[in-house]
């Protein structure tokens, strides 16, 4: 877990640092300006990385046997 946790840093690097290097329109990706598509990409990747972190985090496996929570 301690190693996996560092995955969460990547979206911060991608969005906060990366945007400085991809600040351009071409090539369009899925019809969007490149810099916008880059940010969208990191939102999706960020969600996937958090799914990995969630799955491997022992805190989410053990305990909390209290009644199953309502799903949204």
């Amino acid at each position: 877990m301690t190693v996996v946790r560092w995955l969460a840093i990547l979206p911060f690097l991608g969005i906060l640092v990366g945007v400085g290097f991809v600040n351009r329109v071409e090539p369009l990706v899925l019809g969007m300006p490149f810099v916008l598509a880059w940010i969208v990409g990191w939102v999706v990747v960020g969600s996937a990385l958090m799914a990995i972190v969630y799955a491997l985090d022992p805190a989410n496996r053990q305990g909390e046997p209290v009644a199953r929570e309502d799903r949204p």
């Binding site: 939102v43 969600s47 972190v53 969630y54 985090d57």
Partner: peptide, 18 residues
């Protein structure tokens, strides 16, 4: 009701932002 909710939301809610 339980703290796991936040950890699950952390992976689900970003997609909702799209």
């Amino acid at each position: 009701r339980q703290e796991r909710t936040f950890r699950r939301n952390a992976m689900l809610l970003p997609l909702y932002q799209l």
